[in-house]
C-alpha cells in the first residue's frame, strides 16, 4: 500500500484547528460588516472610542466564555457560570475599598470564592458521579440565592481607580488581560492536568487507562472555570461601576453562545478557550451590527438566534467537507 502523501504543515495546522480558524474568519467577517454598516450610518469608520467600548463591553463575556469553554472541553457544561458571576459581582460591589491593598485583597478573595464555587461543582461531578448539567443547574440556584443574600438590591459601589484598571474608558487597556489569559492557559495546557482536561473530554476511560488523573483533572477544570467566571464578575462590576445580584444570569446562555460561535465542540475534547474569546467578540459584534443597521432592538435575540444556527450549520458543513477531503 502506498504511503499517503504528507500534506503541507500549514494545511495540517488549519485542519487541526478548524474551529479556531472558522471562528477567526467569522470575526473578520463580522468586523468588516460592522465597519461597512458603521460607515454607511455615520459617514466615517469606527475609531478608538468604539474599539474601547466594544472591548470593555465584551470583557465579561470573554472570561465567561473561557470559563464555559474549559468545562465544555472536558465534555461537560456549566450552567452555574451566571450564578458565579452574580455572586462575585455582588461581593465585589460590597467589599471593594478605595485603598490599593483593599482592591488587591478583595480581588483575590472574590476569585477565591469563584474557585470555591467551581470546586463544589467539580467535586460533585467528579466524586459524586453526577451529570454536570444537573449539578450546575442546582448550584446555579444556590449561587443565585447567595448573591441575593449578599446584595439584596442593585447597589454598592466600585472605586474609580478599579474601573480605570479593568474597564478604562480612555483606551482598550483591558486587552492586556486577554493576553494574560492566553499566557496562563498556554502554561496550564502544558501541565499534566491540562493534558488531562483534553483527554477526559475525548474519552474518559481511555484517559484513565493511559494514566491520566481523571478526577483531579476534572475538579481542576471546574475550579479554573469558577475562577474565570469570578473574573468575569469583576469586569462586569467594574464596567457598571456598581453591583447587581441578577445581572449575571444572562451570562450562562451567553457563555454557551460564545463557546459555540468560537467553534468549540459541545461533545468535548476539542477547541481552546482562545476560540471562546473570539466567539465572545463575534457575539458583541453581532449586537453592534444590529444596532447600527437600525434594527429594532426588540428583534435582537431573533437575529442572534438565527446567527447562532447559521454559524453552527456552517461549521458543521465546512468541517464535514474538510474531513471528506482528508479521507479522499
Amino acid at each position: 500500500m502506498p504511503q499517503p502523501k504528507r500534506k503541507a504543515a500549514w494545511i495540517r495546522l488549519v485542519e487541526q484547528n478548524a474551529g479556531l480558524v472558522l471562528s477567526a474568519v467569522l470575526l473578520v467577517i463580522a468586523i468588516v460588516l460592522y465597519c461597512a454598516i458603521y460607515y454607511a450610518a455615520q459617514g466615517r469608520l469606527p475609531g478608538g472610542f468604539e474599539l474601547t467600548t466594544t472591548v470593555n463591553n465584551t470583557m465579561p463575556l470573554v472570561f465567561a466564555g473561557a470559563a464555559q469553554a474549559i468545562v465544555v472541553i472536558t465534555g461537560g457544561i456549566d450552567l452555574s457560570v451566571g450564578g458565579v458571576i452574580d455572586l462575585t459581582n455582588a461581593l465585589a460591589a460590597l467589599y471593594l475599598g478605595d485603598s490599593p491593598l483593599s482592591m488587591v485583597l478583595c480581588t483575590i478573595g472574590v476569585i477565591a470564592v469563584g474557585g470555591a464555587c467551581g470546586l463544589l461543582n467539580g467535586l460533585l461531578v467528579a466524586y459524586g458521579r453526577l451529570q454536570p448539567i444537573l449539578v450546575t443547574l442546582a448550584t446555579l440556584a444556590i449561587f443565585q440565592g447567595l448573591a441575593i443574600r449578599v446584595l439584596p438590591a442593585p447597589g454598592g459601589s466600585v472605586p474609580e481607580a478599579y474601573t480605570a484598571i479593568l474597564a478604562n474608558f480612555e483606551a482598550p487597556y483591558s486587552l492586556v488581560f486577554i493576553v494574560v489569559l492566553l499566557v496562563v492557559w498556554a502554561l496550564v495546557r502544558r501541565t499534566s492536568i491540562g493534558v488531562g482536561i483534553y483527554a477526559i473530554g475525548n474519552d474518559d476511560l481511555a484517559a484513565k487507562s493511559s494514566g491520566v488523573k481523571n478526577l483531579r483533572s476534572r475538579v481542576t477544570a471546574y475550579v479554573l472555570s469558577g475562577m474565570l467566571a469570578a473574573v468575569a464578575g469583576l469586569f462586569l462590576v467594574a464596567n457598571a461601576t456598581s453591583g447587581d445580584p441578577t445581572t449575571g444570569n444572562g451570562y450562562t446562555l451567553r457563555s454557551i453562545v460564545a463557546v459555540v460561535l468560537g467553534g468549540i465542540s459541545l461533545f468535548g475534547g476539542r477547541g481552546t478557550p482562545i476560540s471562546a474569546v473570539i466567539g465572545a467578540f463575534v457575539s458583541t459584534m453581532i449586537v453592534n451590527i444590529l444596532f447600527f443597521a437600525q434594527i429594532d432592538p426588540l428583534y435582537q435575540s431573533f437575529f442572534e438566534g438565527v446567527f447562532l444556527v447559521v454559524a453552527v450549520l456552517l461549521t458543521a458543513i465546512i468541517s464535514r467537507l474538510m474531513r471528506r477531503r482528508a479521507v479522499a
Binding site: 459541545l266 461533545f267 426588540l298 428583534y299 437575529f303 438566534g305 447562532l308 444556527v309
Partner: peptide, 20 residues
C-alpha cells in the same frame, strides 16, 4: 445541530419574534 444549541437558538428566535 447539537440539541442544546438548536433549541437555545430557537428560544432566541422566538423571543425576538414575540417581542418584535
Amino acid at each position: 445541530v447539537p440539541a442544546v444549541v438548536m433549541t437555545l437558538a430557537m428560544n432566541g428566535v422566538l423571543e425576538g419574534l414575540t417581542l418584535g
